[in-house]
């Protein structure tokens, strides 16, 4: 049996353990089971529609008990990048997430930061971002997801808007969140687990599974959230495993612990 402390599980939030204000059935108890096993875990999210504080409130009200330091968001990673490079951002970021950027200078901006911000993706704001890019400002993508799941169905993520800005300006975006290798590495750093001892559980076959597997982690694709039949065939190599939901993913991880499959 492998020692649980060597293993780290990265877990996506939206579409994997919840959709908006609703738990994906069995996720709360599966998380408690994982916690009891002494396996390391961290939530890694490209959710950029709300600040970490609001996100935590939402998860707590659903019934999850998760600590602030157990969540690693692409917003935090983006903020740290901007700060380290002393950039002044023009933010296409949802108002509910702006508090994560309060300490940065924003006057006379010299870079464009794009997250999931339906209210900011008007032609006018997009055009303002475009004009800044024409001056040579870098384009920083909090993440580049194509779409996400809402109660009303699938909805456009920031990826399409980033892709459009890239095309029109000729500037390639730097991607901060999943599937960037740097993001996954930063998320597991504190646990000192080898990539082969890390799992990533998520509903996005490219950003969660493809991205983590590219650096040697094991991707567990859940058939919840934005999953659509056939998604598992979109990446090569295919996901380590495909399961119905988060609680099935936890079962597989615990089984691997007793009898390592590789």
């Amino acid at each position: 049996m492998t020692s649980p402390s060597k293993i780290t599980v990265l877990i996506d939030l939206s579409g994997t353990i919840h959709v908006e204000d609703k738990e994906i059935e069995g996720s709360i108890s599966a998380l408690e089971k994982l916690r009891k096993s002494k396996i390391n875990f961290k939530f890694v999210t490209n959710t950029t529609k709300e600040s970490k504080r609001i996100l935590l409130q939402r998860l707590t009200s659903i019934g999850f008990s998760i600590g602030e330091n157990e969540i690693f968001t692409s917003l935090t990673a983006a903020h740290d990048t901007l700060k380290a490079r002393e950039l002044r951002p023009f933010l296409l970021i949802d108002n509910k997430a702006l508090e994560d950027f309060v300490d940065l200078h924003k006057e006379n901006p010299n870079c464009v930061v794009v997250g999931l911000a339906p209210d900011k993706f008007s032609y006018k704001c997009m055009n303002e971002a475009f004009k800044l890019l024409l001056t040579g400002a870098p384009l920083i993508a909090v993440h580049k997801s194509r779409y996400y799941k809402t109660k009303a169905g699938l909805a456009l993520g920031p990826g399409p808007f980033i892709s459009g800005l890239e095309y029109s300006s000729g500037i390639k975006a730097e991607i901060i969140g999943k599937p960037s290798a740097e993001f996954f590495k930063s998320a597991v750093k504190e646990f000192k687990s080898e990539p082969k001892d890390c799992y990533m559980v998520g509903d996005d076959v490219r950003d969660d599974i493809g991205g983590s597997q590219a650096i040697g982690m094991k991707g567990l694709l859940v058939r919840s959230g934005k999953y659509r039949p056939g998604d598992e065939n979109k990446i090569d190599p295919p996901p380590y495993n495909v399961v119905n939901n988060f609680s099935e993913a936890v079962e597989i991880i615990l089984t691997d612990l007793i009898a390592p499959s590789l």
């Binding site: 997009m126 475009f130 456009l156 459009g164 800005l165 890239e166 029109s168």
Partner: peptide, 23 residues
């Protein structure tokens, strides 16, 4: 990719075509 209007370059349909293609 863009066109010029009132002396300034503005986003053209290509930006939105790419957005839907990518999505």
């Amino acid at each position: 990719k863009y066109y010029k209007d009132a002396g300034e370059l503005c986003l053209d349909v290509g930006c939105y075509m790419k957005a839907l293609e990518y999505a």
